[in-house]
Design a protein around this nucleic acid. Sequence first.
DNA 1: GCGGATTAGTTTGCGAAGACCACAAACTAC
DNA 2: GTAGTTTGTGGTCTTCGCAAACTAATCCGC
Lengths: 420, 420
Amino acid sequence: MLAGPDAYTGAMNLMGPGGRQRNLASVLGLLHRNGPLSRAALTDATGLNRSTIADLVGELSRSGIVEERAPDPARRVGRPSPIVAIDPRVVAVAVNPEVDAITLAVVRLDQSIVLRERHEVPRAPAPEETARLIADRVAHWRANTIPDAVIVGIGLAVPGLVRASDGLVRDAPHLHWRDTPLRELVEDAAGLPTRVGNDASLGAMAEHLFGAARDVGDVVYLNGGASGIGGGLIIGGIPVGGADGYAGEFGQNRPGIADEGDRRATGGVLEDEVSRARLLDAVGLDSADEPTLAAAVAAAVAGDDPDDPIRCEVERQRRILATALGNAVNVLNPSVVVLGGFLATLAEVDVDDLRDRVRGQAMSASTETLELRSACLAEDRLLIGAAELAFAGILADPALPTGAEDAERDLVSGAAPSSP
Amino acid sequence: MLAGPDAYTGAMNLMGPGGRQRNLASVLGLLHRNGPLSRAALTDATGLNRSTIADLVGELSRSGIVEERAPDPARRVGRPSPIVAIDPRVVAVAVNPEVDAITLAVVRLDQSIVLRERHEVPRAPAPEETARLIADRVAHWRANTIPDAVIVGIGLAVPGLVRASDGLVRDAPHLHWRDTPLRELVEDAAGLPTRVGNDASLGAMAEHLFGAARDVGDVVYLNGGASGIGGGLIIGGIPVGGADGYAGEFGQNRPGIADEGDRRATGGVLEDEVSRARLLDAVGLDSADEPTLAAAVAAAVAGDDPDDPIRCEVERQRRILATALGNAVNVLNPSVVVLGGFLATLAEVDVDDLRDRVRGQAMSASTETLELRSACLAEDRLLIGAAELAFAGILADPALPTGAEDAERDLVSGAAPSSP
DNA sequence: GCGGATTAGTTTGCGAAGACCACAAACTAC
DNA sequence: GTAGTTTGTGGTCTTCGCAAACTAATCCGC
């Protein structure tokens, strides 16, 4: 594009993300987080002018990112306002590779999950294998399952340390991945913009946006899984990665252990002391899903034998967990702590008691308004979090091309989707 | 203000802080953080157009917030660019009440300290006393010392828990203040916009902006004082307060203590185990300033007696400190940890060794790029932090009236400052 | 069921703000 | 001095959001 001396090149405003982009993002963000809203509601929420909202919605609609529906059967006086909703065709691919399986999903920008596939693998999958599987499945879906979808990108939730800047998996011990350029691998294989994140951090983001900590600005999230304890932080409404994206590794912390008799592991590392394996051991099971474990724990605690070994182990783990949470609360002053996995099981034995214990270990002021909650998105959590990574781009700058415009244009002109 | 049917009420853009305000703030922020810059440098740094920078600087200049100087004797080819600097008349009042004294200062928006006064008090000052002193001194300065200064507000650094939302001092144990509406008290007494913050958090902000962690986005700051250990966080370049503003209280944490023999206090609270008092005790002094203490510690460590009690105590505290730092690093993945007060003394015994110890206690990836640094702003730190609090308003929205315009107008018109 | 009240979409014009351009100014290097 | 470079300046143009006036669609009271 040659720009003559008098041509106004426009388009690129060097001011950076400002003005228009910002407003588009705020409208789209509202729809993304809150679900469908009337134009009137958008006007209210953004504080923008009616005409401006009309214009913004028009632009998003023309880009194929949102669609307008007839107003709800109005229950109020006045002219009914059309409902603006996210176009269901805008989706992301979410992937969660684990030791025993790779889970893939297609997640809509409106946060609903279109499809989910679990591919069992005999042993920990190699990165290349994972990339290939993703590419295959994406191609297959595009051709068959969701031909009219616009896939804006791929998000991966990896159980391990991930460098945020370039999607390099530094160390995922259970997958035996070390310094794996996963983002590059997947991007090359599937030909779609790809982002990689730590599973627990993405879980935190999902719980913050759509789960137990919805609309809460300062959240500490801790998840207890079979392989350890991971976590994530939301501070001031923003997911925290730290300098390299490794933030949130509560599992490696060494909390104080008040009673030396409570110590089981030599290092005093949280995830060695508070662990699902020890809990299973006490319960006398080799493996169990979370409800089974929870039931066994609940039964032991409900019994009246104060020396019940299950009960003792639960109490021991709760004591140490309380100290770890107290430390986190002192430093971060969150308003909600969300617990997932077996940590939720541990907490639910008696949430109020655990809260009191945390209060005993942290400053009173910080714990006054503190709430402990159990995570609530279950198996969708990581997929929603991973999708969120893929959506980050379009949410930050909805004007950026994603392919949705083309689909829209094709639709409008009645032509077949452009694929040479 | 009546707005006729065709009057453009303008001024308030419901878009919130956008466009103009943003650009003014970014120019002013650059000057505030970097010191004087040429207009060309501003153009570069902001990415804005030359003409836009001219306009913005013009507006700031007309408001009396910045001034333009003749270009530096140019050393480069091309037309020299005028230097834009912050007007030295724009100041804030910074206050740091302590048990034995109240320190007040007048700090320029360019971060230089115009004057500092230390008012010794026989016993912990009452809040009302503090407010009255501030009001008196401000009145005095206005009349005598700095008649042409424009005081944009008052910032207080309080050693205790401060609720960020309303400047309520929840608990400042050494001052015996509890649930004291300090912001209100000072605002009423002095008639100036007032902000209150925790001393350590403000120290963190100062070190981040102008000190040891300058230009570093993710910082953990820990300060060891006579009364305990306080701290502050900078995450993604933003000072972190948490839900209520109490974040950063590392001193109340309970880190793991690997060797039970290292335990001195029953609770295992960091600031009971790692404390200046215990260090002084080991050194055999009743009280000492930091250099004296540091010298004694250095001497003991330099000696070749491995059983030297000072050396042992230092090593013990370093072991526990390392665990506490490891915990913080795991959770926050900062790129720099800044240590102040006696914690700097402890660290400086052997910084590399302490770093290695932290590495041993935290995940390797997070500590790869980790740096431990000593704080460097000394006694100015809290005052600069407090002033920053007072400047927050003008920095966020330079267009907001501060009184600087009036001073400028008076100056230009040659009239005496308006004071009825 | 009809007119007023209410709420919200639509259209039009305006003003703010920043980008680009052409030109002038000020300096260095040769 | 002249050429080349960098930067300030002023004018024009585009974008974007707002206000105002109008219109549309609903509810409500009588």
